[in-house]
């Protein structure tokens, strides 16, 4: 294995550093997912209201998210805001803002879809019982959509973790950056380290994401 560079990972704290790097992007993902789910519920609910002005704004929002690569959004927030508004937004904060902006749209669309799948008569019977709109959503509609939403939200976590690998581009030291540093530091003693180290990074992502997406698939099948 020595010539493939796996040994490099067992030198000093290298493997630990790699895991710490991975944790950086997982941490950003988890914060963004939690925020996205909360905001997504609100946005999804707003999308089902029949307010034309709101609808138009949300449509533009969704379309921006659908078309713009997350990397472009990252650049705009990280480089653009400093330049235009003079704000000094840290790379981590930029990442959380962008991934929440993206995740909220994704989640909102999922929430909208599952609310729409509830028959109108459910709303009507709730109103007939004297519940107001908020009460109807929280006591009648959301509980019915929850089984559909949980697997989809879990899926969002894996997509988020995969997407946060992009933060490398705005200078955050995450797993790929750590990997590059390790390879660079050992280029003389272990010239083939790139193979072993990147293979391990590949596997690490898989080990993190695979169980989560299996769980989502399992729940989806069970609750269908």
């Amino acid at each position: 294995m020595a010539n493939l560079g796996i040994d490099v990972l067992f030198k000093g704290t290298n493997f630990l550093r790699l895991l710490q790097g991975l944790w950086v992007s997982i941490e950003i993902s988890l914060i963004a997912v939690v925020l996205s789910i909360i905001l997504g519920l609100v946005v999804g609910m707003l999308m089902t209201l029949n307010n034309p002005f709101l609808k138009a704004i949300l449509k533009v929002y969704l379309e921006i998210v659908r078309i713009m690569p997350q990397m472009v959004l990252l650049f705009i927030v990280y480089f653009g805001t400093t330049r235009v508004f003079g704000w000094d937004v840290s790379a981590e904060a930029s990442a959380i803002i962008v991934f929440t902006f993206w995740g909220t749209a994704e989640m909102g669309d999922l929430v909208r879809g599952s609310i729409k799948s509830i028959p109108v008569i459910q709303f009507e019977s709730a109103w007939a019982l004297g519940l107001n709109k908020m009460q109807t959503y929280f006591y009648i509609i959301f509980p019915q959509t929850i089984r559909r939403l949980i697997p989809l939200s879990i899926n969002l976590i894996t997509r988020m973790i995969k997407t946060t690998s992009l933060v490398l581009m705005i200078g955050i030291v995450e797993v790929l950056k750590v990997a590059q540093q390790i390879i660079e530091a050992n280029r003389n003693s272990s010239p083939n380290a790139a193979f072993g180290v990147f293979a391990v990074v590949f596997l690490l992502y898989f080990i993190v994401c695979w169980p989560i997406s299996r769980l989502a698939t399992y729940l989806e099948k069970r609750w269908e």
Partner: peptide, 10 residues
């Protein structure tokens, strides 16, 4: 279950 970025690096 892996990011394109990591696939490309590999």
């Amino acid at each position: 279950n892996t990011p394109l970025l990591v696939q490309l690096f590999f």
